[in-house]
Amino acid sequence: MRTWQTNIATLVILVFFLVAPFLFPNNMSQLSDLMIFILIALAWDMLGGQMGYNSFGNVLFFGIGMYIVASSEVILGGFKLAEYTSAMGGNQGSFILTPSQYLIGFGVGIALASIINFFLGLLIGSQFLQMRGHYFAITTLAIGVAAAEVARSIPIIGAGSGMNFPQPPDGVPLFHILYYMGLALVVLFFIFLSWLYKTRFGFIMNAIRDDEDKAESMGLPTASIKSTAWAISAFVFAYAGALYGSAKNFIDPSEVAFPFTTIGVWMILMAIMGGMGTIWGPIIGAIVFQIFKELFWTYLFGWQRVALGLLIVIIVVFFPDGIMGAFNNWKKRRNLQNTAKAKT
């Protein structure tokens, strides 16, 4: 697509997303989930699609982000975290926040979650990114599983019983806030990635994907590029996790915080469906995934996972390069045909 066409398409999509809450006021939960899915698909693709590091472990940052924002709301609401979590289930009425307490706790929490996870990502990445291929994938899978188990053993965050978020005070349009905060980072992250993938940093990420040994033998700073990319991804996952937890209003260690059988798989599926290694692929993949997921959960309840599985099989078999990959291949074929026609 030509640049002006791409820009117009981008603008149309952006305007649609801006007005979507007014068009679909009864679907705010699904819309905010969509923003979260776009974020995690883009952030996963940064590692898996652009850099060739297929990670299952990003749910670590997703879950930590969630716990940080919940804890921040409690603490900045003037309560002690241990008292709050130990009282859960029986005495929530004592922990009522004012709108300003809630919003300050939420805002500070989401900022802290993102920043802390960025540095945590740097730290972890410098160690785990020395592994490659299957070893890296399996290790990151283990991180996700282990994280849930560790969370289950920490009483101050509710241990195995999980942790409720403080109830949003009346008058706080939670899902609108979550949706627009998600959209804000989607827009910023999209602009950032569009720029990053055209810089040398992005080129080196692609070089690592195509032949890391070659990149290293050319003196490229592969280790620091990998760690930095992983940390950026961790930042976004923590932000998305904070939104997701707030939307669900309850953190279960393995079902919500570190859900490697749902979010941990979906983040990869969305990127594959849309087209790995492309800027639009994860966005399109997330939109398609969310639409079909909601349709299946609504109309095929009981068989929804089977239907989702079938959809994935169909896409992988008929569009192995994803939707964007199929589109790009079609464009190439059309250009070749046009060139051939022009010659004859």
Partner: peptide
């Protein structure tokens, strides 16, 4: 050993020399 999924020009641009650990020039 080349970067097979990229075109020749991008292969060349990636190969510009880096003689230090500073990442900042990579963001150009």
């Amino acid at each position: 050993r080349i970067y097979g999924e990229m075109d020749g020009v991008k292969n060349m641009l990636i190969s510009r020399p880096i003689r230090h650990h500073n990442l900042m020039p990579s963001f150009h």
